[in-house]
Amino acid sequence: MTDNVIIIDFKNVDKFYGSFHALKDINISVTEGERVVICGPSGSGKSTLIRCINGLEFHNSGVLNVNGIEVHENSPYINDLRQNVGMVFQQFNLFPHLTVLENLMIGPMKVRKSSRIDAEVTARKYLDRVHIPEQADKYPAALSGGQQQRVAIARSLCMESRIMLFDEPTSALDPEMINEVLDVIVELADTGMTMVVVTHEMGFARKISDRMVFMEEGRIVEVSPPDQFFTSPSSERCRAFLEQVLDH
């Protein structure tokens, strides 16, 4: 936040799925080291927005710059971009035919062309960081959901990305496993990495975010610092949403 280098920049971005208008005139920029949390009701375009950042979806008009590369469907640099933008999915998406260690090593080895030894050192380092070094030789199916998601986080970290995207990282987890994953993300947030997080966990959001973004029906309705966001949101819709999710 100190140097204010803009690392993700949406300018008038629109996205359609057929005739469905998924993102409407999105304008937001994220500076390096900033942690932005996006929330909003389901179907509001949060996931679409975050998936546009690393080109898993492509927008239809407007300009999106990420890490100095313009993201669009025909960009030849899309794989370079993705190497620097880690993504953690709701469904973990670990590679089931590879062991945990191999899951972490395959990106560095095949994409970054690291040596096997370097890749393994990095993999073990990040497996330590997500607190499951002892699971290295198991297959993903043998792990609990929370452990799988932590492996998925470690897999993204192994690419030494500058930006991390989290797309509802705890939504597919059993309640008792949510905290172990959130704790890991909070620890990561403390390292000063740029993060964009889509989540419904409001306590967690408040803890890590520099800025909160509220979306509804494909539009960004509110952007404000967490203190203001949770105590006195300026829009009525945001207030209604927060009452719903904070009530229980």
């Binding site: 898993l56 794989n79 370079d80 993504m87 994409v111 970054r112 897999r155 690419m159």
Partner: peptide
């Protein structure tokens, strides 16, 4: 998606 997201 996981494969592309690590730059493959």
């Amino acid at each position: 998606e996981a494969a592309s997201s690590i730059g493959m």
